[in-house]
Design a binder for these strands. Structure first.
Lengths: 253, 253
DNA sequence: CGATATCTTGAGGAATCTCAATACTAGTGG
DNA sequence: CCACTAGTATTGAGATTCCTCAAGATATCG
């Protein structure tokens, strides 16, 4: 986690692959499609303007590392399009993905002054960048933003607890079903179709998110397909045949 | 999680088993031993006084449920002595403990208006209770408190990510070693001895925290004892024989 | 259309769980 | 002070889920 269900939207004057530009005159926020989901949702015009002042937009290809574990934490990010994964590694390379970040999600919070995890793009991604110092200054100035951010952190904590329950106590099948439901629910919150669920990440990424191997993920998908709970469609889409079934399967009921 | 490394200390005019009393005249905070660890650390005298005004102290025996998953979230808590566990259940009774709360830790944050987990005492416990509404009002009034709380929530998120890595990717032995180190480090932060580590919780609780069974926890302890990494002492204490060994074992190195 | 990565499927193995018995500990009452 | 009880911890044996290793199928991209 430490990606927060914040939000900030798309813009036109963006550039590609790490090149950023001040989002100056045009006030990009006005066009933002994910604003309602995030910090920005709560802001007055003035606050939004000040936020826009310090913000830059960036674009990355798929598979790009936004920052690595241990890097100095100088920037906060908000996803405006695409999917980002954040993960931690063990010395021998075992990996745990702690979250997938979708448009409107916020990430880059740090504890001391370095990131405690790596952030990498799963698909091509657009981001808003907030310099940390300036963001902190804004938070001090606008308690409402602070509070909003805190409330989003609380949501994150709740999600983290759910994920711990999943990792510690659910079976492979329950994990996969929970995962599909999560994607469906997050799509719904974003106003997208909930049913054919878009699953942009690889089997390996799903495995590292659920504490499984790619083989087990693949086998479990096959099994769910065979028992007619889901079907796999073109373009990384998963059709949920019976939502109630899936809900039960996700909790072992 | 959603227990936050906040703090608030012991007091004299406390009562037992759920009975509370206004912590009025005497200003209990002045005697607080865990104040430095928590929200209170950052506060001015005035802020502290206001906080003390809305606070009540409570005491519970071991094994008492402070609140249950789904209960209306009307109170925030701060542990001043003893240990509390917070957990979530699956319909069939499988349990995941998402955190053990020690003196100075804060808990009771909620997402909508109900608790997303159950909180239960492990040992006899003293708590400070803050009515949620009044606490929120104070947070609005004192941005510094808000910010402190947010920073503690960020710490929680980082801890949650560590726990996900543990649950998803570590072996039983690595889990147990990590757990002992965690207890040792938390003791250290509280100014307690780091080496014979006090482990107040049962094997079953440890198992439910680490995503194992009690049998596996027990076997792993025996194994670590046999290989002279730790030894088990009287009174739920664990002596760490070689801290560096343990650090390596915790990460699979 | 070929090269490369990703996904699926198979067979066997290993870590952990389940079930079951025994040992220990702490508290209770004689 | 000592047995007795109830809960907790340890140990054992076998079962099971999931992992590992390996091959083949499918998809993706230049």
């Amino acid at each position: 986690m430490t990606h927060i269900d914040f939000a900030y939207p798309r813009d036109s004057n963006t550039q590609t692959n790490g090149k950023t530009d001040p989002a100056g005159e045009i006030h990009p926020c006005s066009a933002c499609t994910v604003r309602t989901l995030t910090v920005c949702a709560a802001l007055e015009a003035e606050e939004l303007r000040r936020l826009a002042e310090i913000l830059q937009t960036t674009r990355f290809d798929a598979g790009h590392t936004v920052f690595g574990e241990g890097d100095p934490a100088e920037t906060l990010y908000n996803v405006t399009s695409g999917t980002v994964k954040v993960y931690k590694l063990l010395p021998d390379g075992r990996r745990q993905i702690t979250g997938f970040l979708l448009p409107g999600d916020f990430f880059g919070l740090s504890v001391n002054d370095s990131y405690a995890y790596t952030a990498e793009t799963v698909t091509p991604v657009s981001l808003c960048r907030f310099p940390r110092r300036r963001m902190e200054a804004l938070l001090d100035e606008f308690p409402k933003m602070q509070r909003r951010l805190f409330s989003m952190a609380s949501n994150e904590l709740a999600a983290a607890q759910d994920q711990m329950l999943l990792l510690g106590r659910k079976t492979a099948k329950e994990k996969i079903c929970s995962f599909l439901l999560l994607l469906s629910q997050r799509a719904s919150r974003r106003g997208h179709k909930t049913n054919p669920v878009h699953v942009p990440m690889s089997r390996a990424d799903i495995a590292d998110y659920l504490g499984l191997t790619t083989e087990t993920v693949s086998r479990t998908f096959t099994q769910l397909k065979t028992s007619r709970v889901i079907s796999l469609l073109e373009g990384n889409k998963v059709q949920i045949q019976d939502m109630d079934d899936l809900l039960d399967l996700a909790e072992g009921a």
